[in-house]
Design a protein around this nucleic acid. Structure first.
Length: 213
DNA sequence: GAAGGTCAAGCGCA
DNA sequence: CTGCGCTTGACCTT
């Protein structure tokens, strides 16, 4: 386990040729993280999905929101949300052609995500995924698919986690449920998606009406 | 357009 | 106590 470096550099959690998985515990200060959390919690278009399992319809255990945007103009990011400010800060540390942001809200310890990796066909090769954590700390497990033990990391509010494209091939990650009482936690995840998918996103996303008939 | 992958809750196990 | 692996099935870039 690498030690915390005193000069603000990241902890290297996983190594590969594209930067592996890096973690900046104090990427932004607590006050800013708290302000962003409040604004996003109150202002995002949160969606609650359902899934069927064993003839029962169950709630997906988290709320989600998602915005595709143009990397140059930032069009697509709602102006009343601090997403553009967050993106600027993230790009300065983890450069990338981000064109989509997904948010997850884990309301309490019963909310979770199963171990998974991001779908590679939905990501541009070589481009990292950048994940900002806000709200309460939650444990994330990271495990090599090849086997071995899971690495647990408490994602602190204001922390940044950067995952290489290549690491999605070799590792999976998840947020387990916990019986401990925990306040809400939010992740803000920036990705660079292939243009054809990004275009489909723009079509699917709420857009100004422009019917021609 | 087809079809293989995903991922929910709960259980048993180590 | 906690993580993990197994199960079924509707849905498939939210």
């Amino acid at each position: 386990m690498p030690g915390l470096d005193l000069f603000g550099g990241p902890l290297q959690l996983v190594d590969d040729e594209e930067g592996g998985i890096r973690y900046w515990p104090g990427f932004v200060d607590g006050g800013e993280a708290a302000a962003w959390f409040d604004a996003l919690r109150d202002g995002c278009d949160w969606r609650h999905q359902r899934r069927t399992m064993y003839e029962r319809v169950v709630d997906v255990p988290r709320l989600q929101a998602w915005y595709p945007f143009d990397p140059a103009s930032l069009q697509g990011l709602p102006a009343q949300l601090p997403l553009a400010a967050i993106l600027v800060r993230i790009r300065a540390v983890v450069p990338g052609g981000y064109n989509s942001v997904g948010l997850n809200l884990y309301r309490d310890g019963r909310d979770s995500v199963a171990m998974h990796n991001d779908k590679l066909h939905m990501l541009l090769p070589g481009q990292p995924i950048a994940l900002l954590s806000l709200g309460a700390p939650r444990r994330m497990n990271i495990r090599a698919k090849a086997g071995g033990h899971a690495l647990g990391i408490d994602l602190q509010p204001g922390s940044l986690l950067a995952m290489s494209h290549a690491s999605q091939l070799t590792h999976e990650h998840g947020i387990p449920k916990t019986t401990r009482p925990v306040p809400p936690r939010m992740s803000v995840v920036f990705r660079a998606r292939p243009e054809q998918d990004a275009a489909a996103d723009r079509r699917a996303a709420p857009a100004p009406a422009k019917g021609w008939r």
